[in-house]
Design a protein around this nucleic acid. Structure first.
Lengths: 169, 169
DNA sequence: TATTGTTATACTCTATAACTATA
DNA sequence: TATAGTTATAGAGTATAACAATA
């Protein structure tokens, strides 16, 4: 941008991606997400499976579509996700006596154990991510990001990328 | 996670995605990126085109592959990007007298005007993003994120998502 | 023989909409 | 007629590797 702009003096925030809040968030969000993806890989699941497992664990017996609505995942995609978790023996579909169309989702004992492992991995992932910050800085950062998240009306535990299309870089 | 974990008391950072640094970054990075994508859409370009235009503007006359190396974009993908920008009349490929294999990249006058517009859009995008923060908070946040970016060895102006695969959510 | 740019192929992921079985 | 779940199809985006021209 140095010699591109006619003569306007750059201000904080528009003097290039180095100090752009949006670009920093985009870069760091991608890196954080990619590493989390790699962290989960040895367990044979992806971040989206983790989010799904969490919601099922939180309220077992729900139908696929009600879970999908909470996570903002369209019905046709829930199927594949549940399929994958069922193949790995982490989740099971049971019949719903009161509505034979619906499939009630439950964690298997193995699913519970894996979810415990995932939480431990999440802790180390989380610690590694901010290792260059002091505890106070970390608190500050999280507080500020939560303010932004509130501004953007983000729902805790729901990733906006699950709703729609792939990542626009 | 409430009733899933055996009995361990949740600590800050692992008591669910609400206060997880990684998840917040991932959510906000996605939202920021998606809105930036939508902001550029009326101009007929995407964020990746903007990054490419910037690098070309910064040093005109470079070959496609040298630009690609700076942005960490593989050769086979540069072609399509340059194609698209050339179709829109923002960029042009010129012959390189000293190496007839290479194609030297230059902005067109129109490309320069569009790039100026994009910078203006970037400013308003940037302002909107942190509108719930005070100027001091904004400075703090950017400083902390830059610290993280340094920790992750992120290169200014280079988006890690351009290098490889789509967004893992 | 190596390199620049290009293209062809296969692969993955997704949305859309059709379909079934129940309600 | 509407709804839960499923599946088939087509489309977009990508990596990979082959290719032509030039070095």
């Amino acid at each position: 941008m140095e010699d591109v702009k006619s003569g306007a003096k750059p201000q904080r925030g528009d003097d290039g991606p180095q100090s752009s809040l949006g670009f920093l968030l985009s870069q760091l969000g991608f890196v954080s997400s990619r590493r989390w993806h790699q962290t989960l890989a040895p367990l044979g699941i992806e971040p989206r499976h983790f989010l799904l497992l969490r919601f099922v664990a939180r309220s077992e017996g729900q139908s696929q579509q009600s879970i999908g609505q909470m996570l903002h995942i369209p019905p046709s995609r829930i199927v594949a996700l549940v399929d994958q978790l069922e193949e790995r023996g982490l989740l099971e579909r049971r019949a719903n006596p009161s509505d034979r169309r619906a499939r009630a989702l439950y964690l298997t004992p193995r699913g519970r154990r894996v979810l415990d492992k995932v939480w431990k991995l999440a802790m180390s992932h989380e610690q590694r991510l901010g290792s260059s910050l002091t505890p106070e800085e970390r608190e500050q950062l999280i507080t500020l990001l939560q303010k932004l998240a509130a501004e953007e009306k983000l729902v805790p535990g729901v990733h906006p990328g699950l709703t729609s299309a792939p990542w626009p870089s």
